[in-house]
Amino acid sequence: EVYKVKIKIERVLPNGEKVEEEITIEVEGMSEEELLALARELAAEPGVRIKEIEIEKLPP
């Protein structure tokens, strides 16, 4: 199964400015739980906050 994972994050820059970013990846052969863990890892940097995680199962 192939999933499209869209992660919206908010990053706080050293000057205090907040910037929103969106990361989209396609992943194959992982469960939804593994995808959530991967998304959290991607956003685990200091000053980064996850705003939204969207997981979509793509048709075969």
Rank of each mutant, 00 (worst) to 15 (best):
E32C: 04
I53Y: 02
I7D: 00
L42H: 13
E17V: 12
A39L: 12
V5G: 02
E41Y: 10
L42I: 11
A44P: 05
E22H: 10
E45M: 15
T24A: 08
L13M: 09
K6G: 01
T24W: 05
K51F: 07
E45A: 13
E52Q: 12
E54V: 15
P46C: 05
E32V: 15
L58N: 04
R40Y: 14
M30H: 10
N15L: 02
E34Q: 15
E32M: 12
K6A: 04
L42V: 05
K18H: 13
I50A: 01
V12K: 09
E21N: 07
R49H: 14
T24K: 09
P46Q: 13
V48Q: 05
E21I: 13
V27M: 14
E21F: 12
A44T: 10
L13R: 11
K51D: 02
E10M: 06
E21M: 14
G47T: 07
A37K: 11
Y3F: 08
E56G: 11
I23K: 02
E20W: 09
E20H: 12
V48W: 05
A37Y: 09
V19D: 02
L36T: 06
E54W: 14
N15E: 03
E52V: 12
E33Q: 13
A43K: 04
L36C: 05
L13S: 10
I55R: 04
I50G: 00
E20D: 11
P59Y: 12
L42K: 04
I7E: 00
I9E: 00
T24C: 05
V2G: 11
K4R: 10
I9L: 08
I50R: 00
R40P: 01
P59F: 14
R11K: 10
K51A: 06
V19E: 04
L13A: 06
I55W: 06
I53T: 01
I7C: 01
G29Y: 06
K18Q: 04
K8V: 10
I55P: 01
K8T: 14
V27Q: 05
G29S: 12
L42S: 05
A39N: 01
E28F: 05
L13Q: 04
I23W: 10
K4N: 07
L36K: 07
K8S: 09
K8L: 08
K51C: 04
I55F: 09
I53D: 00
K57A: 08
E56I: 15
T24F: 13
K18L: 12
P46D: 05
N15V: 01
Y3N: 09
T24E: 10
E22M: 10
V5F: 03
E34T: 12
E33K: 06
P46F: 14
K57G: 08
P46E: 05
L36A: 08
A44L: 12
V48H: 02
V48D: 02
E32K: 08
E34Y: 15
N15S: 12
E52S: 08
V2W: 11
P59I: 15
I7W: 01
V5S: 00
P60T: 11
V5K: 00
V12M: 06
L58P: 11
I9M: 07
R40L: 15
L42Y: 14
A37W: 05
M30L: 06
L38G: 02
E33S: 13
E54R: 15
V5A: 11
E52T: 14
K4D: 01
E41D: 14
K51N: 06
E10V: 13
I55T: 02
E17Q: 14
E32T: 13
K18S: 10
T24V: 14
V12Y: 09
E56H: 15
I53H: 00
E56P: 02
L58A: 09
E22T: 12
P59R: 04
E52F: 13
S31R: 08
V5L: 13
A39C: 07
I23R: 03
A39Y: 12
A43F: 09
R11T: 02
K18A: 11
V12G: 03
G16H: 03
R49E: 13
R11H: 02
I23T: 02
E45K: 15
V5D: 00
E22I: 14
E21G: 07
E52G: 09
L35I: 13
I25N: 01
G29Q: 03
R40V: 12
E26A: 08
G29C: 03
V2R: 14
K4W: 07
V19L: 06
M30W: 13
V12E: 13
L38S: 03
E34W: 15
L42T: 08
V2F: 11
V27A: 10
R40E: 06
L13E: 02
I23N: 01
E22A: 05
T24G: 02
A43L: 07
R11N: 01
G47C: 04
I9V: 11
P46A: 12
L35E: 01
G16C: 05
E1R: 04
E20A: 03
P60N: 06
I55S: 03
G29T: 06
P59C: 08
E1H: 10
E17A: 10
G29H: 10
N15C: 05
G16Y: 02
K18E: 04
V27C: 04
V19W: 08
V48S: 05
P60A: 08
I25L: 08
E17K: 10
M30V: 06
I55Y: 07
E34V: 14
E20C: 04
E33D: 12
P46K: 10
K51T: 13
E17R: 11
E17P: 01
P60M: 01
G29L: 03
T24Y: 09
A44C: 05
V19Q: 10
P59G: 13
K6R: 09
N15I: 01
P60K: 06
Y3H: 14
K57V: 10
I53L: 04
E32G: 06
L38W: 09
N15Y: 03
E32N: 15
E26C: 04
T24M: 10
G47I: 02
K8D: 01
E20I: 12
L38Y: 12
L58R: 13
L35A: 10
P46V: 14
I55V: 06
P59L: 11
K4L: 08
E56Q: 15
V27H: 05
E17M: 12
E54D: 09
V12S: 15
I7Q: 00
E17N: 10
R40W: 12
E54Y: 15
E17I: 13
V19F: 05
E52M: 11
L35R: 02
S31D: 07
E41I: 13
E20S: 07
P59Q: 11
I53G: 00
I7F: 04
E54H: 14
I25T: 02
